[in-house]
Simulated scan of single mutants.
Amino acid sequence: MSEATSEQAKATSEQARHDYDKAASGYAGYSELPSGQLEAELVRIALGDCTGCTVLDLGGGMGRHARTALQLGATAVDLVDISAGMMHAGQQQYGVEFDATARLRFWQADVAQPLDHLPLRKEGYDIVMANWVFSFAGSTQALHAMLANVRRHLKPGGRFVGVRDADPWSPVLQTGKYGGLCRDISPIPGGVRYVCVLQSTPPVEFVGTCLEVVYSGSTAVYEQFGLSEVATVPYTSAPVVQRDPAFWSEFLQRPCLAVVTARGSIRL
Rank of each mutant, 00 (worst) to 15 (best):
S2G: 15
E3L: 15
E3S: 13
A4P: 00
A9L: 09
K10Q: 11
K10S: 12
E14L: 13
E14D: 12
E14W: 05
A16S: 15
H18W: 10
Y30I: 11
L33Q: 14
S35L: 13
Q37A: 01
A40P: 00
R44F: 03
R44W: 04
I45V: 12
I45K: 06
L47D: 04
D49C: 08
C50D: 05
T51W: 07
T51V: 09
T54A: 10
L56C: 00
G60C: 02
H65D: 15
H65R: 02
R67V: 13
T68S: 06
L70W: 06
A74S: 08
A74C: 06
T75M: 09
A76R: 15
V77G: 02
D78N: 08
L79N: 07
V80C: 05
S83K: 03
G85I: 07
G85W: 03
M86E: 02
M87R: 08
M87Q: 14
H88E: 15
A89W: 05
Q91N: 12
Q93F: 14
Y94P: 03
R103D: 02
L104Y: 02
F106M: 02
F106K: 10
D110E: 09
V111K: 01
A112H: 12
Q113D: 08
D116A: 11
P119W: 09
R121M: 13
K122T: 14
K122F: 08
E123F: 08
E123K: 13
Y125M: 00
M129G: 04
W132R: 12
Q141F: 08
L143P: 02
L147R: 03
L147A: 10
A148K: 12
N149I: 10
N149M: 09
R151E: 13
L154H: 07
G158C: 04
R159K: 15
F160P: 04
G162P: 01
A166W: 04
A166S: 12
D167H: 11
P168M: 06
W169N: 09
S170W: 03
K177I: 07
G179E: 03
G180M: 14
G180E: 14
R183E: 12
R183P: 00
S186N: 08
R193N: 11
Y194M: 12
Y194V: 00
V197T: 15
Q199T: 04
S200L: 03
S200C: 15
T201I: 06
P202K: 05
P203E: 03
E205T: 15
E212V: 07
V213W: 03
Y215N: 06
A220S: 13
E223N: 10
Q224R: 11
F225N: 05
G226Q: 00
L227F: 05
T232P: 00
V233G: 01
V233K: 08
Y235Q: 01
T236G: 03
T236K: 11
V241I: 11
Q242L: 09
A246H: 11
F247K: 05
W248Y: 11
R254F: 06
C256L: 00
C256M: 12
A258Y: 00
A258M: 13
V260E: 10
V260T: 10
G264C: 05
G264T: 04
R267D: 11
R267Y: 10
